[in-house]
């Protein structure tokens, strides 16, 4: 008897799971199809990246056939899909490694940077945005506005170089370009690829500290840009909520101003705020090419960009799938968090 009510729930769960997997599959097929077609019509010859400019025509022709470029685009794409379904994403021209191996190497570097940056953006951006809304038109609002504007308008490339010059070059507070000092290269066994985690697992605190000192500046820089965005959106959401009658009612009932802000207004901005933070996090997880260039950070952004310039389509497609997966994953996480923070959605 007990099982009876669970059956529809279980089948609903399976149906939802199936629909999720189907949407995931369709998204990936759509993403790869568009990327594949764009790649084939780019102004860069993919054979050039592989054989170089000096190779003889015979070598060039042989490689062109080897890469399957003599076949119709749809056939090339179907062949690619077929291989992907067997777990073969191909080999990168620019690194000579299987794409999966590359992605497992480059994505953790980006993940580490994006996560710390988002945590910083979140911890500072949300309170700053709330304060700006609470003190609308007064000095805290102006300060947050100016800081945010600065974050929006400064070129990341320039700010990165200035940051390096001051905090690494002059003050020596942080590590320089790269993820670690040379002496620590290859000391820690790669488990997750996230150096902070790998070094902590092995109890290599010296390396943990060194990795952190290299990470902190690019993370603060990216965190600053994400902070500017999060603070601005938080302010806007909060101003709207603070003008609602339920806030006035709470105040009339004797609740303090900050009590009304945090206990009544803030929970109501959580859902849109989660969307904003999720999008900001996902965009950082795509990789930040300019930041990665300045800080010699071997991340996903630099990898995809370099692959694109070399028409290394296997790598670009692999990178695209990761970016797609990141967006889908972050969306799912946001959906879950909506339900945690908004009781109305739990029964839906």
């Amino acid at each position: 008897m007990r099982d009876a009510p669970d059956r529809p729930r279980a089948s609903a769960l399976i149906a939802r799971l199936a629909s999720f997997v189907l949407s995931l599959l369709l998204t990936f097929i759509g993403l790869t199809a568009v990327t594949f077609v764009i790649g084939r019509f780019m102004a860069v010859d993919p054979v050039l990246a592989k054989v170089g400019d000096r190779a003889s025509q015979a070598t060039y022709d042989a490689v062109r056939i080897e890469m399957g470029l003599d076949r119709p685009v749809y056939e090339q794409y179907l062949h690619y899909l077929q291989k992907v379904f067997t777990g073969d994403f191909g080999t990168s021209v620019i690194t000579s490694h299987p794409i999966i191996q590359d992605l497992l190497h480059f994505f953790p570097a980006t993940f580490e940077l994006a996560t710390i940056a988002t945590v910083l953006g979140l911890l500072i951006g949300v309170p700053a945005g709330v304060a700006a809304a609470a003190f609308k038109g007064r000095w805290p609002d102006h300060v947050v506005g100016v800081v945010g504007l600065f974050g929006y308008s400064m070129p990341v490339f320039w700010l990165g170089l200035v940051g390096l010059f001051v905090f690494y070059g002059q003050l020596g507070w942080v590590g320089g370009p790269g993820r670690l000092d040379i002496v620590y290269d290859d000391v820690v066994t790669t488990r997750t690829g996230v150096l902070l985690i790998d070094s902590a697992i092995e109890g290599q605190w010296e390396i943990f500290r060194n990795a952190f000192s290299h990470l902190i500046l690019p993370a603060v820089l990216l965190g600053y840009f994400s902070l500017a965005y999060i603070a601005r959106m938080t302010r806007s959401f909060m101003i709207e909520q603070l003008s609602q009658e339920y806030v006035t009612a709470a105040r009339i009932k004797g609740l303090s101003f900050w009590g009304a802000v945090w206990r009544h207004a803030f929970p109501n901005i959580m859902v849109p705020l989660i969307t904003v933070i999720g999008l900001s996090y996902a965009s950082l997880l795509e990789g930040a090419v300019l930041t990665e260039t300045v800080f010699a950070w071997p991340g996903l952004g630099l990898y995809i960009t370099r692959s694109l310039f070399n028409a290394d389509m296997n790598a670009v497609l692999g990178g695209t799938l990761v970016v797609g997966a990141v967006f889908i994953g972050v969306n799912q996480l946001c959906d879950f968090l909506y339900k945690v923070f908004d009781p109305r959605l739990r029964t839906a």
Binding site: L164, G169, G176, P177
Partner: peptide
Amino acid sequence: RHVPEPAAQRLLIEK
């Protein structure tokens, strides 16, 4: 070491 940005190379050698 791969350091794509010349300004970063300058900082590294000066340090």
